[in-house]
């Protein structure tokens, strides 16, 4: 299909601290996100999703796939381990270079991609993180939204990379459900209003989600 795609990258923390309920809540949340987007005609035709996780390494769990064909992959969570968010940002940059089509005279480009980052900690690879948070800003994302989930999450480092930082006080299925619902309406809003360089207007967040920036 030659339709313009709206690439959406989901970057999820699977470091050791996410084990148990948090990761289960994330899985449920992503499923809800997919189901909600499938009810939006615009998203159904344009949204392409990529799911990446990061713990001590970054993993492409699902490369950029159309919403229609997307199937929920298995998310694994190691027992324990560092949060290499910097490495994950580098991985996102490589994937964007490889997957997002730029406009050429022969072919229309994709919509500007969106990136959602969810973490319950803070980057352990500070130097790498600082380097790639600069570089990722130059990748032409329409919007980078970061979510600091739970009490251990630090929002400060996320401001470096994200246009918007949201804070979740807890990581349970209710809160994350609210977050992913909001992500879905953000993607929907974005897929419907592409066509300008104007700033993305975020839909009002649910009660559990506090927009910080």
């Amino acid at each position: 299909m030659s339709a313009r795609r709206l690439p959406v990258y989901l970057l999820l923390d699977t470091s050791g601290s996410m084990r148990g309920e948090p990761i289960e809540a994330v899985k449920v949340g992503v499923r809800m996100l997919i189901a909600a987007l499938r009810q939006d005609p615009y998203a159904l035709e344009s949204v392409h999703l990529s799911l990446m996780t990061f713990d001590q390494k970054a993993t492409v769990v699902c490369p950029l796939t159309s919403l229609e064909a997307f199937q929920m992959p298995v998310l694994k969570c190691p027992d324990a381990g560092p949060t290499h968010l910097g490495e994950a940002l580098a991985a996102v940059c490589f994937r964007v270079d490889a997957e997002v089509r730029q406009g050429t005279p022969e072919r229309k480009g994709d919509w500007r991609p969106m990136l959602f980052i969810m973490t319950d900690g803070s980057p352990s690879d500070i130097a790498v993180y600082n380097e790639w948070s600069e570089k990722i800003r130059a990748k032409g994302f329409a919007s980078i939204i970061a979510c600091a989930a739970g009490t251990r999450a630090k929002e400060e480092p996320l401001r470096k990379v994200a246009d918007h930082v949201v804070v979740l006080d807890t990581i349970d299925s209710t809160t994350l459900g609210g977050f992913f619902k909001w992500v879905s309406s953000t993607i929907s809003a974005s897929s419907a209003t592409m066509g300008t360089t104007a700033e993305l207007h975020l839909p009002p967040p649910p009660r559990e989600v506090n927009v910080v920036l």
Partner: peptide
Amino acid sequence: DSGEHAGTTLF
């Protein structure tokens, strides 16, 4: 006038 990404144009 088309930009690098779809939807980016001049006004």
